[in-house]
Design a protein around this nucleic acid. Structure first.
Lengths: 189, 189
DNA sequence: CGAAAATTTGACATGACTCAACTGGAGTGG
DNA sequence: CCACTCCAGTTGAGTCATGTCAAATTTTCG
């Protein structure tokens, strides 16, 4: 994780040490929940190894996948984490997963002790926001097939690691329709 | 703008002065473009007064509204601004508009001179990211009618200031269909 | 091997789009 | 002050993309 951070900010050895004191390493088994809808999201997690899915279940019982996270990504229900209010989303491990976690108080503390962390997260958030905006535009301007092709192109690694019905719910379509799109793509070749 | 910033970070008088030195005030007329698709977005703008729309035109010539901005909002093509590469979006004034602008170099400079600005923008971005994620979830889980009702509820002020066809393109539907939804809502009462 | 989970297939239903025509202001100019 | 145009909004008919439901098939994994 430190290597990853150094791409965005330069850290002194003593800063690295402070960061380490404010984080904890945690292992989850496949299927375990890091965050559950209704609970407060206590940590922001950096994925060292594994794969997770953020999703929420609506009133009709339908699942909507908000995002996936693999190695070197951050995950949390950010809205819940920031305000320490009940989460709208679940975050579940799709594989055995190892994460580095920042608790809310530790992170606030860390911002005071290592101001560079403000910069680091500002940069990370800028990128996340731009990506989210792009995805939003695509959701409106592209057809389901177009969104699927874009997804395959952007995240080929994720496509291979997660079941198809989760990809469908990430793209905002039903698993049946995604299956039909895939079939159609094969026929086209 | 300073009042607005003080809600998130405490600024010393000399910091306020530095911020002022790094910004410029600019007026635009209704219809003018702050950013144009293809040009590099040179500024991040804080809206003092007025109303703007960020949108992009796809290959088929269709407009997609990415966001609106009114008083106390920030606007830019953030992706373009951050990397200083050509913009995907247009930002156009829907009314005569007054903004405070940060150029890219001024802002980078400001981050060095007033580190609190890192914190300020981190917080702003967190909120923007959470809002964007929510909108994304809605775009997938709600029907067009549901999205329209939510929009009216969330941004009643904006609804009254912008033409209906722009709201339609913000919601990802055609102006005709929005008109039908509105008609339907009247009949329901 | 057998059961559960994931995916595929097909018939039918529906939300949302397209296109074209129409309505109704808000200027604008004679 | 009227005629004209222009733009936003409405309406309706027909179509297409995507959803629903139920059954069949394949894959995964204990």
């Amino acid at each position: 994780m430190i290597d990853y951070m150094q791409k965005f900010v330069e850290l002194e050895p003593q800063e690295v040490e402070i960061i380490q004191k404010h984080t904890s390493l945690r292992n989850y088994l496949k299927g375990q929940f890091v965050v559950q809808q209704g609970d407060v999201c206590r940590h922001e997690s950096f994925v060292v190894e594994g794969c997770l899915r953020t999703f929420y279940v609506d009133e009709k019982g339908q699942e909507h996948t908000v995002m996936f996270a693999i190695e070197n990504w951050w995950t949390a229900d950010l809205g819940s984490f920031l305000t320490q209010t009940p989460a709208h989303y679940n975050v579940q491990c799709l594989e055995n997963t190892k994460v580095i976690q920042f608790s809310h108080t530790n992170l606030e503390n860390l911002y005071l002790q290592v101001p560079k962390m403000e910069r680091f997260f500002r940069i990370i958030l800028q990128r996340a926001y731009v990506a989210s905006e792009r995805r939003l535009v695509r959701s409106y301007s592209l057809t389901a097939k177009g969104r699927y092709l874009k997804f395959r192109q952007d995240y080929p690694l994720i496509e291979q690691r997660v079941p198809q019905y989760m990809i469908a719910s990430y793209l905002g379509i039903t698993k049946e329709f995604l299956s039909k799109i895939r079939n159609q793509l094969i026929l086209e070749q």
